[in-house]
């Protein structure tokens, strides 16, 4: 027992370092990039409340009321588009208005916080758009706030299509330039030219189909075996995001349950 005590006393610095660094690395590994857990939610609540209060004060001198009214009207109009009887627009979904109160764009795994939460109908997995352009999705919510991941996140793939009936690939941010990403796995035979729209497919259940991610950049695509990797310029300017809309895919629960049935019935 005495030997153990002597050992602890002699190597106390190393032991304390290993203990604290272990705890910190554990925290880092379990939470980095994807804020999870009670503490992060609690911090999100406090920090968001503080940021919300700051935003409230600064907005008193601005025309924020009019902006919010316009945003809500915009969201309502987009929802009305979604209720159109034409089959093309049937899956466009509903839109909820929100304001970005916190945003990063210089990290590899960025995030944004919105001033709307569960109480306003926001749910984990909802897509976020700005002026009709897809910009990210919600990953965590509290009653009054929500946190989301933008396209500027180097670990997420987004299902995207060139034009309304073009080739489909994986859209991903390369972690370097906040204004562009890369569309991977496009067949060499695909017909594309700079300026072509890159749209959501709706396959991931995050966004309705045919929302704009961006446009094909005016740079040559680079070859990757049988496929092309196509540079894409984002439609949204992530450094000036403020008012956004949240999309809701209609009948998502029904579609998800159908998807699980397909998995079960695979021979």
């Amino acid at each position: 027992m005495r030997n153990l005590w002597n050992f602890i006393v002699q190597y106390q610095v190393i032991l304390v370092f290993m203990l604290l660094q272990g705890l910190a690395m554990g925290w880092f590994v379990t939470s980095h990039g994807y804020p999870r857990g009670k503490w992060v939610r609690l911090a999100l609540n406090w920090e968001s409340a503080w940021q919300g209060r700051l935003a409230q004060w600064s907005h008193r001198t601005e025309l924020s009321d009019q902006n919010i009214q316009l945003l809500e009207e915009n969201a309502r109009l987009r929802s009305t588009l979604g209720q159109s009887s034409s089959s093309r627009n049937r899956n466009r979904g509903k839109f909820i208005a929100a304001e970005v109160i916190r945003l990063t764009w210089v990290q590899d795994q960025n995030y944004f916080i919105l001033n709307q939460g569960r109480d306003q109908g926001i749910r984990i997995g909802q897509g976020v758009t700005e002026n009709g352009a897809a910009i990210g999705k919600i990953i965590e919510t509290t009653n009054a706030y929500s946190i989301g991941i933008p396209l500027l996140h180097n670990r997420l793939d987004w299902s995207a299509r060139i034009g309304q009936s073009g080739a489909i690939g994986r859209l991903k941010w390369n972690g370097v330039d906040a204004t562009s990403g890369v569309l991977y796995d496009i067949p060499r035979s695909a017909d594309l030219k700079p300026g072509d729209s890159v749209l959501t497919t709706g396959f991931q259940g995050v966004f309705p189909s045919d929302l704009l991610f961006g446009t094909v950049a005016d740079e040559p695509p680079f070859f990757d075996g049988e496929f092309l990797n196509v540079p894409v310029n984002w439609s949204a300017n992530f450094q000036s995001l403020r008012y956004v809309q949240l999309t809701e895919t209609p009948d998502k629960a029904l579609i998800d349950s159908l998807q699980s049935t397909a998995n079960l019935s695979t021979p």
């Binding site: 610095v13 304390v16 370092f17 660094q21 939470s31 980095h32 804020p35």
Partner: peptide, 28 residues
């Protein structure tokens, strides 16, 4: 020094969503 630095780093992480990044750096 280690314990105080860990507390300082953890405080920053808690409010900056660093997820242990600042704690680990401060300890180092």
């Amino acid at each position: 020094l280690l314990v105080v630095s860990a507390l300082v780093g953890a405080s920053v992480d808690f409010f900056a969503y660093g997820g242990g990044l600042f704690t680990s750096s401060a300890i180092t």
